[in-house]
Design a protein around this nucleic acid. Structure first.
Length: 499
RNA sequence: UCCCCGAUAGCUCAAUUGGUAGAGCGAGCGGCUGUUAACCGCUAGGUCGUAGGUUCGAGUCCUACUCGGGGAGCCA
């Protein structure tokens, strides 16, 4: 068995053999620097002329990116190397040489990378995200397993409509129409009446025609459901749960977070209690002076950024025309490309700012909060925010109305801070047989499809509730990724599946 | 479904506003004993997304379409 790069700290001054792929190589005359990856990390391997045969030296010099190979050598500590160790190569064997690997160490567009997803998964950024996702999922299972929850696997083929019929994928099930699950919640409620505390964890499918940075048609969601609980207890469960995930990622994946440029200091603040707002308070904030000023100052900042980028571009363009060395020109050209990218992004934000400000200012009590509204509230806070007590008519039929104010339901969304937006949606479930029957009818759903669901209210109904957490959204928030499509190995997007 | 933006070399992007298409990276060859997206020299690489139109002349202007990006609605 070859040694693992992640364990090299235990092999200093020993000879080891690594098996992996050439991540990238540089040569400097009589010495070569080969960065090898093996799935556990990266290691710089030093090949010096004279220490290996001339034939091997030449072979390695012309070895293409992502060729597979084994390298043997002595491990030494070296601060300048990635990972803090490097290998003084004494032998190497090329397993399979690769040429013209499409993904170079330079920048690429998203479309190109998604078309090459099968290869892009090998790159450092995707590897870090994959490792963090793994920790998030492990933490999710750990948290529930250690807190008295029982795992219940809910069906993927289902006749139940949880949220909205239009957002379901229909499948032909031996001639009968069924759809792919959009939530395990309804089934989970029946299990909660057996086990008390349960959770399900699996893929979820939504046919929403949403082309935004926070939507996928197939995503992973974990849903806990608890019998004998209330809204306050659910909020506590959610904040402890999210804090636990964050702590685990900080503990297990700090180097990956650093590589990705995540805001570690901000994550270290994620501890209970989170902020709590009612929907009505959120609406007051959105339509109030505070948001107006917030949006105005954000616009001002954006315009500043724009101006700075523009003047820097002008300056660089002037320099480019002057009498300077070729390499300086090249460097300027690269800087210009980056600045123009920043400028384009800023322009979009400047364009969207007044639209979003208008949407917020004109928000009227009764509507569901929009994506941009959630973003604004999220940007105003440095810790996750619970928004509770939404208008009954904007929400799903199964949510329990607040007995003290029948216009609202006992539900909550959890918004991740710093502009990321919603990662959890949950509620206390309607447990009154008559009220639930009335709501099902009002939504135009067929009672006969919900008979078993209503039975749960007929035989020993208890106050209960739960929530769903989106895995990809959580990973995107933690890693600082803008788009959740980077947070699942093979993303499925509206009208588009690459591989 | 609607709104905005884009499509030029394998990749990322330029082209002085209508006058014969350019850089970097990547690839190939050569040089360099400590590189970190290394550096230096040389070489190859393009029916400018598709189809029409305006013009003496279109990468640049107009129309339609295709594909991609961002956003709204909806949501985890």
């Amino acid at each position: 068995m070859p040694n693992k790069i992640s364990e090299l700290k235990n092999n200093v001054d020993q000879e080891v053999t690594l098996a992996g792929w050439l991540y990238k190589g540089r040569s400097s005359g009589k010495v070569q620097f080969l960065i090898v990856r093996d799935g556990t990390g990266l290691c710089q391997c030093i090949v010096e002329k004279g220490k290996v045969s001339d034939e091997l030296f030449e072979q390695l010099k012309h070895l293409g990116q992502e060729s597979s190979l084994t390298v043997t050598g002595v491990v030494r500590t070296e601060e300048r190397s990635v990972g803090g160790h490097e290998l003084a190569v004494t032998a190497a064997e090329i397993i399979s040489p690769a040429t013209d690997y499409p993904i170079t160490p330079k920048s690429h567009g998203t479309d190109f990378l998604l078309k090459n997803r099968h290869l892009h998964l090998r790159s450092q950024g995707q590897w870090c995200i994959g490792k963090i996702r793994h920790t998030v999922i492990d933490a999710i299972r750990r948290f529930f397993n250690d807190n008295g929850f029982t795992l219940i696997d809910t069906p993927i083929f289902t006749a139940m409509v949880g949220e909205d019929k239009q957002s379901l994928f229909e499948v032909d099930y031996f001639g009968e129409p069924l759809h792919l699950t959009q939530t395990g919640q309804l089934h989970l409620e029946s299990a909660a009446m057996s086990f008390g505390k349960v959770y399900c964890f699996g893929p979820t499918f939504r046919a929403e025609k949403s082309k935004t940075r926070r939507h996928l048609t197939e995503f992973w969601m974990v849903e806990p459901e608890v019998a004998f609980t209330d809204l306050d207890e659910l909020l506590e469960l959610a904040e402890n749960f999210v804090s636990f995930i964050v702590a685990r990622v900080l503990g297990d994946n700090k180097s990956q977070l650093e590589t990705l440029g995540a805001d570690i200091a901000a994550l270290e603040k994620i501890k209970p209690p989170f902020y709590r707002l009612t929907y009505t308070e959120a609406v007051d904030i959105l339509t109030g002076e505070k948001t107006k000023q917030f949006m105005a100052s954000q616009l001002e900042q954006l315009q500043n950024t724009k101006q700075q980028a523009e003047s820097k571009i002008t300056e660089l363009e002037q320099q480019q025309k002057g009498q300077i060395k070729q390499w300086q020109k090249d460097k300027i050209a690269a800087e210009l490309i980056e600045l123009r990218g920043v400028l384009a992004e800023t322009d979009t934000k400047i364009e969207n700012n007044p639209k979003h400000a208008k949407l917020a200012a004109e928000f009227r009590w009764g509507k569901d909060l929009g994506g941009s509204d959630e973003t604004i509230i999220s940007q105003m806070h440095d810790k996750p925010i619970f928004v509770t007590h939404y208008p009954k008519d904007a929400k799903a039929f199964y949510m329990k109305t607040d007995r003290d104010d029948e216009k609202v339901v006992l539900n909550f969304d959890l918004l991740a801070p710093a502009g990321f937006g919603e990662i959890i949606g949950g509620s206390v479930r309607e447990d009154d047989y008559e009220k639930l029957t009335a709501k099902i009818e009002k939504q135009g759903l067929e009672i006969k499809n919900y008979e078993w669901y209503l039975d749960l209210r007929k035989y020993g109904s208890v106050p209960h509730g739960g929530f769903g957490l989106g895995v990809e959204r959580t990973v995107a928030w933690l890693t600082g990724e803008k788009h959740i499509r980077q947070c699942i190995a093979f993303p499925r997007m509206m009208d588009k599946v690459y591989i």
